[in-house]
Structures are given as C-alpha cells and as structure tokens.
Design a protein around this nucleic acid. Structure first.
Lengths: 363, 363
DNA sequence: AACCATGATGGAATCGTTTCCATGGAGGCG
DNA sequence: CGCCTCCATGGAAACGATTCCATCATGGTT
C-alpha cells in the first residue's frame, strides 16, 4: 500500500552507478554529462527526494529555523511570523514554531526542544532575560531577536530600597503601584546583538509630541511584557518627572490588560491621554474606556502601538504607531540565514505615526 | 569555544557502560538500579541531550507535526495555531509551520517540504483539493484537516460560461456571476475523513434564522476560499431559490475581500443583511459599509463568522458566529497524535451565535 | 549437581545521506 | 613513448541514535 520512499541507494542501483555519484549529481558536484542525465532521469522516475534526516545527521545540523513568539493570537506576531515564513520559504528552509506565552520558563523549555532537534538558528521575540539566552548562544545557536531584546540582566534589581516588595527586576514594572523609577536613562543604544527592532524611541517620541501638541499633559503609558524599551522611550519623551502612577504594566493576557487599563482609568480620572504599548493593550483600553463611559477622543485620547487591520474598524478609528511587523520578521530571517561569519548587526526599522480619529485636543 | 554536544557514546564511555545500556536507561528500558543511577548521573553531568537527528533517522520518522494554515495574520488561524501548539507542547512534539496563502500550489510545495523532512503527521487547513492531498496520504502521511475539508474534486473548472460548466461541484460556488445553482444539496455529511470542523451548518442556520426573525429577507453571503461548506449551509438555510447575486466570493486577500464587499453593497443596495463567512470578510464588510455611508445596523445588519477579540471593539459590537478556534487546533492535534490504528473520525465542534449590536430589525 | 529461566549488558547492524580517498582511464606534454 | 595530471567514479567511513542478538552471571528448581 504505502510505497516507501526511494532512497539514494535505489537510485544508484537503478542508474547503475554508485551512491556517491548520485549524491554528487544531486548536489551539484562534478559528473559527466551522460551520467548526470541518467541519474537525473532515474531520480525523477522514482520520484526520489533526498531525506533531510540523513543529510542533517551527516552534516550535524538541521536545516530548519526556529521561531519563538509570545502569542500567535496577537495580530502583530502573526504578521511577524508571516514575514519569517515568507523569507524562509524562499530559502527552502522549514520553520519550527513555538509559542512562549511570554513565560521565560516555557521559552527556556522551547529553546531546549530546538536544541534537541539540532535547530541551530533561531528567531525569537524574547520573553526571558539574558540568562535564558546566553546558554543558547553558548550551545552554538545563532539567535536573532525580533521586536525586542532580552532584558539586560537576569536578576537585575532596579527596585528601590523603599518598598519591601523588593523582588526587584524588570518584574517590578509589573507592579501597579508607584515604585520610585530608575533614572529615566535613555534606552541603551543596542549594538552588536543581532536583532531587528522597530524604532520604538522615535515612534513613542513622535506620539508623545503629537499628544503634547494637542494640549495633553497627563499622558499615561499602558505597557505589557517586553515593553521595556518602549516605556523607557516614553519616560525620555515625557521628560524629567514622570508621574509613576501613569505608567502601568500588564502581563500578557487580555484579562490582565483589561484590568490594567480599567484600573488606570479609575485610579486616575484626571488623565487625558493614553499610549498603549501594544495592540492587545490598545484593545483593552478601548474596552475599558467604553465600560467606564469614557468617550474617545472626547474624554480621553488614545494612541496604540501596532497598526493592525482592526484599528481602522474602531470608531473612531485608532491613531496608531505603525511598526512593520512583516518586515521585521522578514529581515530577521534574512539575518539569521546569512549570519555565518558576518558580525552581528542590529537593524532598526522605522515606525510611523498614523493619525486617525482617536486623539483630540484637550478640553 | 563552542563545546560540542555530548553524544551517547561520550556518556557511555564516561559511565563505563555500553551505548546500548545508556539508550535503554534513557528510554525506560530495563537496567540495574546501580547502572541506571550512574548513567543518569553522568548524563546530567555532561548535560547530555539525545539528538533527535539520530533517533529520527533510526526510526525513520521525524517526531514533529506539520501545521499548514492559510494565513497567520488572520486571527482565527492564530487561535487555531495556538491550540495546536499547546497540545503539541504537552506531547513534547515540535511543530513545523507553513503558511499557504490559500494557494494550492504553495500548499503542495509545503507538503513536499514536510515530506522531505520526514514529518509524517500534518494538521492542515486545506486550500487545495483532493489532488493535493491524496499524494500526501499515499506517501504515508497522517493528515488531519482542521476547520475545512479539501474541495471534493480536483480540477473542477468553475470557469465555464453559462451552460457548459454544468460540472456542478462545490467549486462552482466560486463564481461571482449568477450561474444557476446546483440544487441546494445539504452539505455532504463528512465521514471517515480525519478532521476537526466547526458545526458550520448549525451556526449558519442559527444566524440566518436570527436574521429572518428580525424581518430580513434579502440576506447576502460574503465568502472566501474554503468557505464551501458555509455557503452550502447558507443555501440550505435560506431555502430554495437563492438570489445568486447575493452570494459573493473573494480570494484570501484583504483587498479582494474589500472589493467583494464593496461590490456587493453597490450592486445590490436592496440587501438588508450580510453574513460574512470569516473575520477578514467581516472586517471588509464593516469597512465597505462605512465607506458607502451605510450604517450598521440601521441600514444593513451584519453577522460575522469567527469571534475575534476586536469584534467587541467595533461600534456597534459585531454579532458573530463563534467557532472555537483554539479547541479546533487542540483537538486536531490530539487526533493526529493518536491516529495510529484508530480509524479516522471527524469531530464536529459546536458553534454559538453571540448576539451583540450589529443586527437590527428590518426597517 | 545439572539445568533452565531471567535479567543485565555490550557489540554490532541499521537508518540515508555526505564526503574522503583510492582507483582507473584518458589525454597532454616533454 | 613515458609520465604526470585531471576527472569521473565507486567503496567505505562517518553522523548519533535504537534495537536485535548473543553472552554472561545469577538464582531457583528438579
């Protein structure tokens, strides 16, 4: 019933040549025209396809590319994945996919899985910090980060001595309460790390200026996991004393995003504009605003990071900071494909403020 | 620099046993407690991870699961993918992903790639017809379809002018013009094909009844690739003489969806309700309606297939037919994992009409 | 005491490919 | 004419695991 696949041996036999010759013909080595033609004919006739298994074992690497994203349900990551897929297809490389749920632990587990599969090239939207990724690199993986960089240090504690909460780490940012901020340091200029990022800094700055121009002064930032760079840019753009109550973080889930948005609106009814750090946060903000009978943009202006198709569907249509998700994926894939030798470079893609209807003048 | 990974041989040597013993210990075979402990200790110490390459070659199969979807940018497929990923992770199986763009040719190419990788279990949202999938099955692949079934017949040409076509397959439905419809046959009760589908028939029927109940008589259907079952259900639900001008199809792209929706509204201003066969179509319908100054639901009622997070964001929030995307993926993965021996079964998951604000009484 | 069953163990074959190396023939040049 | 080079070619060794099979020790049974 199931015709088992022809092997190189079958082809060799049928063509009356040695396996080595077949291999050479098929991978472009030298061979006499006569032989070449015969082998090719036989191979086609037998519908021979070389087994990636054998080849990979011999070459000690799997052709594939690993792709790790936090959540495919987030349209932005869908776009990014499509970009990666497009590039990988054109290179003939399979892509093995993992969804981390923004959980460093799952991420580490998935990295392990890729390692086991000998997938040695990975594109990742990292959730974990350097401690997750350093071992991967040490194991010989070529890693290209997309959209984000891993948190600088593993157990880094920016936590003020103040509060006992003290767990300290970027996780502090997860807190809703107003922990004294680390100095509004400019986002460290990334360099040397192979990565493809959007120009968060410019994007955020433009958005903040735009809101400022409309008269807004009490602007809130609604962030999610991995938005460190964005929040840093926000702090920088807003200027020195940032009202910490206006900087709120959620975890990855939609529920958490909604809770954060709702909490923000309720605790600070005086805010006049919100900058959502991602489309899930934006969605939550719209929902929460509606629930609390806040009109957009009359009562509150809203700018969302990520241009997703539905941004235009909202009423009013959402003003967004567009980042080229598909391109980010595509470029990241290009980078990981030609990473051999070339020294790592981080490329930054432009963002664009797309003004639609969700921002209005302060009233 | 790069410590190369330890092999089973290294472990065997270090533990002073044979490779066979190591393999047995690691895969749960019999071994004396003393040996087992020693091997385990050494393996842990060397940070040994068995190479999937070696194993797979020996076992003539790749552990992985293939996943083929039309477009990850479509939130529904994102949900589906998340479901597959969740199940695959819990089974420890890697997932290799492909995006077909609803193009049978690309799909066939991707199937070939999976074959080459010896990925012998695939979950697919099929774009191509039986002619794409029959070879895959013949090559020994276990294929589980999700969300759709492949078109019944391969090369059915929907291109026939008027009469000649008469082929009368579901492919006919692709026509935009008003070809006389095949008798509104009930969707063939699927059986024997391993697949996980939503109960399109019930979902559509419920929606149509709901619209009917609101007084609507001229209800249009806006479909996309792979919506054959849905349009068949629509025909069935609407009853005998379906106004063929009210059944419109788009290709997969957003542009095409918009064009179809816009064209529909313009050519038939008398329609009072639209049933969109997928979330991309629904999005297009909202956009087109707005562009043409049609108010929802005052001028036109809208029901969309797929419950996506942003359905609630629209104003008015969209009434939808929800299908459990994540569950579909999860179940499909379960099916493909235990497909050995068990005879193929197609499972149908329930849909639910979620009434929000996009439908109103006829006026 | 001889024998057998049982269980642990290691050697070796195997999977399908690539690649190193040796061989042999043909042709060019001195 | 002889020698050297070059190319096409095939055999065989990897690659890293699993697994069959033979071996050996042990302990219980007759």
């Amino acid at each position: 019933m199931e015709a088992k696949r022809a092997t190189i041996k079958d082809v060799a036999e049928a063509a009356g040549v040695g396996v080595a010759t077949v291999s050479r013909v098929l991978s472009g080595g030298s061979a006499s025209p006569a032989t070449r033609e015969r082998v090719l004919a036989v191979a086609a006739h037998l519908d021979y396809r070389p087994s990636a298994l054998g080849r990979n074992l011999r070459q000690r690497r799997t052709g594939g590319i690993g792709l790790l994203v936090p959540d495919l349900t987030d349209t932005f990551f869908g776009q990014l994945a499509e970009g990666v897929l497009a590039c990988a297809r054109s290179a003939g490389e399979p892509v093995v996919l993992g969804s981390t749920g923004d959980d460093p632990e799952q991420e580490a587990e998935l990295v392990g899985m890729l390692l086991e599969q000998s997938v040695d090239r990975v594109i990742a939207v990292p959730s974990g910090g350097a401690d997750t990724w350093e071992p991967a690199a040490r194991a010989g993986m070529t890693v290209v980060f997309a959209d984000r960089l891993p948190a600088e240090r593993p157990g880094d504690a920016p936590s003020g001595p103040m509060s006992g909460s003290a767990s300290g780490s970027t996780a502090d940012l997860m807190l809703l309460d107003g922990v004294p901020p680390p100095p509004p340091a400019a986002p460290a200029p990334p360099t040397g790390v192979p990565a493809v990022l959007a120009d968060d800094r410019a994007g955020i700055r433009t958005a903040v200026r735009y809101l400022r121009g409309l008269g807004h002064r009490r602007i809130a930032f609604l962030g999610g996991p991995g938005h460190d760079r964005r929040v840093a840019a926000f702090r920088e753009a807003v200027g020195s004393p940032v009202d910490e109550e206006l900087v709120v973080f959620a975890t990855g889930s939609r529920d958490s995003a909604y809770a954060a948005a709702s909490g923000l609106f309720q605790s600070r009814p005086d805010l006049t504009a919100v900058l959502a750090g991602g489309n899930v946060l934006g969605e939550a903000a719209v929902l929460a605003a509606r629930e609390l009978d806040l009109r957009v943009p009359r009562d509150v202006s809203l700018v969302m990071y990520d241009d997703v198709p539905w941004a235009e569907l909202c009423s009013p249509p959402l003003t967004v900071i567009a980042q080229p998700g598909r391109d980010i994926g595509y470029r990241a894939c290009e980078l990981v494909l030609r990473a051999s030798g070339r020294r790592p470079r981080t490329v930054v893609l432009p963002t664009e403020l797309i003004v639609r209807g969700s921002c209005g003048p302060l009233r």
